[in-house]
Amino acid sequence: MPVHEIRAFNRFYTNLIGALDYSKHLYTPYTLTESRVLYELAHAPRTDAADLRAELSLDAGYLSRLLAKFEREGLVERAPSALDSRRQRITLTPRGREAAALLDERSREAVNAMLSKVDPADRARLTEAMRSVREILRQGGAQEAARPALREPGPGELGWIVQRHGALYAAEFGWNADFEGLVARIVADFAQDHDPYLERVWIAELDGRPVGGVMCVRDDAPGTARLRLLLVEPSARGHGVGRQLVDVVVAFAREVGYRELVLWTNDVLASARRIYQGAGFTLVAEKPHRSYGADLVGQDWRLSLQEGIVR
């Protein structure tokens, strides 16, 4: 076993990305560990302290001190979990979200700067080599299978949502361009006018590639949110990505004070309907319709949330 080669690679890469130089980590005041905690708080579907500790393999005392520091700096708020009062829910404040967004932007800039020094002909080989390292070590039990990271869409990824919906639904159900046009209008409306406190889009990323997405927007009914545009790439299905995306919408809707979450889908989307049922949604109405070049049965689903008032 070439242990020395692996250790040499570890030394090379940590030096390359500046992981050991806290004063220069992405040119922010946060250490690598602090940055990772902020990342998880901004992207993970569940943000209880116990979940953070398990996900990042951190000592409970160290994590508690780190969160106390974030609280003093106005980056996080801590409160008992709505689902289990024995657990502590951690949420980012607006200032905390700004800090997490800055870290994400700086990280992307750092990677782009590193790649700019790599010959374009070698970039595909580099990314494939990195993917191979992860896959081989996971198969060998060195790490659990990757869990998609949930994050806000980057530049061009709202367009990716439209493109993938159009392509996948045409390939899998034979739907025509009317459906892609509907998705384009939904995405355009969100991009042009949305409340960032009450409405969000998430992208599921795995191995550096988007593999899914979902949207939460305000509905016409007061106190009601609508789940829209759930999508999971075929290559990522069967690994809980869809449930992860639905869970983050439910958690978000509860957190900001919606009283009810609703969605509309079609009966042919069997996998999605099973996810909705598993999350507690109830089918409340069905109606046949002719859309997207197909005869379909539209379905309305709803989920009652905790009592609260949308701010």
Results as ranks from 00 to 15, higher is better:
residue 178 D to M: 02
residue 174 G to S: 09
residue 215 M to R: 01
residue 181 G to W: 11
residue 168 L to R: 00
residue 172 E to C: 11
residue 175 W to N: 08
residue 182 L to M: 06
residue 217 V to C: 02
residue 172 E to T: 05
residue 191 A to R: 03
residue 173 F to E: 11
residue 181 G to F: 15
residue 173 F to D: 02
residue 189 D to N: 07
residue 182 L to V: 06
residue 191 A to M: 05
residue 226 R to N: 12
residue 176 N to V: 06
residue 224 T to L: 10
residue 222 P to M: 09
residue 171 A to Y: 08
residue 179 F to V: 01
residue 187 V to R: 02
residue 214 V to D: 05
residue 197 Y to F: 09
residue 216 C to K: 03
residue 186 I to W: 13
residue 178 D to P: 00
residue 179 F to D: 06
residue 190 F to E: 06
residue 171 A to I: 00
residue 193 D to V: 00
residue 169 Y to L: 11
residue 214 V to W: 06
residue 168 L to Q: 10
residue 182 L to N: 10
residue 210 P to I: 01
residue 187 V to G: 12
residue 178 D to E: 09
residue 189 D to F: 15
residue 174 G to Q: 06
residue 196 P to L: 01
residue 183 V to C: 10
residue 180 E to P: 07
residue 196 P to Q: 10
residue 183 V to S: 03
residue 180 E to D: 10
residue 219 D to Y: 14
residue 208 G to K: 02
residue 180 E to F: 08
residue 167 A to R: 10
residue 169 Y to G: 13
residue 211 V to I: 14
residue 213 G to Y: 14
residue 221 A to D: 03
residue 208 G to L: 00
residue 172 E to G: 05
residue 192 Q to E: 15
residue 199 E to W: 02
residue 205 E to F: 08
residue 191 A to V: 04
residue 201 V to F: 09
residue 215 M to Y: 01
residue 173 F to H: 15
residue 202 W to L: 08
residue 185 R to S: 11
residue 190 F to V: 00
residue 201 V to P: 03
residue 211 V to M: 13
